[in-house]
Structures are given as C-alpha cells and as structure tokens.
C-alpha cells in the first residue's frame, strides 16, 4: 500500500517585511493585554498612570480568563 498522502505546497515566498510587522504587533498586543500595569499611559500621564491603571482594568477580565497573572 502506498503510504504517501497528498499535501498542498505553496511556491510563494514569505514576505520578510510582513513577518517583521507581525512580530511587532504580537509583542505589543501581548504586553497590552497580559502585562501592562500603567506603563503605556505613563508615557503621557506620568506616575498617575500607575495609579489609574486604565489598560490594566480594561484588560482585567481577559487577563484572568486567558491565564495571565493578575494582581
């Protein structure tokens, strides 16, 4: 019996610029949802951002639900 199976192969190349863009989006999105404790808004609002925790609160429920450590 022939054990080979059909597979679909692409001849196209992988866009390197696309990989670079996606890498940045991946890292930024992961930080926003999983780990920000006021860091991003502190660039604009300074120390107050670490008290307000707007992004932390906005992502709070998803943070718990997706398994990220939270408070």
């Amino acid at each position: 019996m022939n054990s080979s199976v059909l597979t679909t192969k692409s001849k196209s190349t992988i866009p390197v610029f696309g990989i670079l863009v996606l890498s940045i989006i991946f890292a930024a999105g992961l930080f926003v949802v999983g780990f920000d404790q006021g860091h991003i808004f502190s660039l604009v609002y300074g120390e107050q951002a670490f008290t307000d925790l707007y992004i932390h609160e906005l992502t709070h429920d998803m943070r718990h639900a997706a398994g990220f450590p939270c408070h």
Partner: peptide
Amino acid sequence: SGQILAGVILGVSV
C-alpha cells in the same frame, strides 16, 4: 466592557 475589546487585541497579537 473590556472583555471583548481585550479579546480582539489579544486575538490580533496571538
């Protein structure tokens, strides 16, 4: 209200 928005951000990221 952030549950779905955060889902989209995490979805785009992952």
